[in-house]
Amino acid sequence: MEALDLIDRKIVAELMRDATLPVAQIGEKVGLSQTPCWKRIQRLQENGVLTSRVALADPAKLGFGLTIFVGIEAPDHSAEWREVFVRAVNAIPEIMEVYRMAGEMDYLLRIAVADMAAFDTLYKRLTDAVPIKNVTSHFAMERMKFTTAYPVDTRNR
């Protein structure tokens, strides 16, 4: 894929800040008229740079007051185990993110649940579905910074 030019980077940055902005307003911010801006947005979507547009919600106001980061150590590294693990985590919507890691843990999960009882239920469901060598849970006490916007360079290089 070709590198993004300055205008593309600015469009992406604006959309990451607020995807509800009208195309004309984005165009004004990046120095384009509405139609060329819309065409660039379409191209960014077609090329997979923009993958979706979503609304962000306050987890606490939705009843998800507990965030847990869970480290998983796999009992083995076979394709079969990974397939079972992927199916298990995909079947549990409270598991918000899953990363395969390098280092001491094999996988890192971000989980959002209502409370400790809900986490206990989720924990049992996950460990019943797939064998796991070790599970380490870290409970978030306060979310001090959160963003979904990557720090795209919007300066002219």
Rank of each mutant, 00 (worst) to 15 (best):
L6M: 06
I7R: 09
R9D: 02
K10C: 06
V12S: 02
L15K: 05
A19Y: 03
T20C: 10
L21T: 11
I26M: 01
I26H: 04
E28W: 12
G31Q: 00
T35I: 13
T35Q: 15
K39G: 07
I41E: 04
R43P: 02
L44A: 05
Q45T: 12
E46L: 09
L50G: 01
S52E: 09
R53T: 13
V54A: 09
L62W: 07
L62T: 04
G63P: 01
F64C: 07
L66C: 04
T67M: 06
T67Y: 06
T67C: 08
G71N: 11
G71K: 10
E73S: 13
E73D: 15
D76C: 01
R82D: 11
F85T: 00
V89I: 13
V89C: 04
N90A: 09
A91R: 05
P93D: 00
V98Q: 09
Y99A: 09
Y99D: 07
R100A: 12
M101D: 08
E104P: 14
M105G: 06
Y107N: 01
Y107G: 01
I111S: 06
A114R: 13
D115G: 05
M116H: 15
M116V: 15
A117W: 10
F119D: 03
D120N: 13
T121V: 15
Y123G: 09
R125E: 10
R125A: 07
T127I: 11
D128E: 14
N134W: 15
S137C: 06
F139P: 08
E142H: 12
E142Q: 15
K145C: 02
Y150V: 11
V152C: 06
T154P: 03
R155E: 13
R155Q: 12
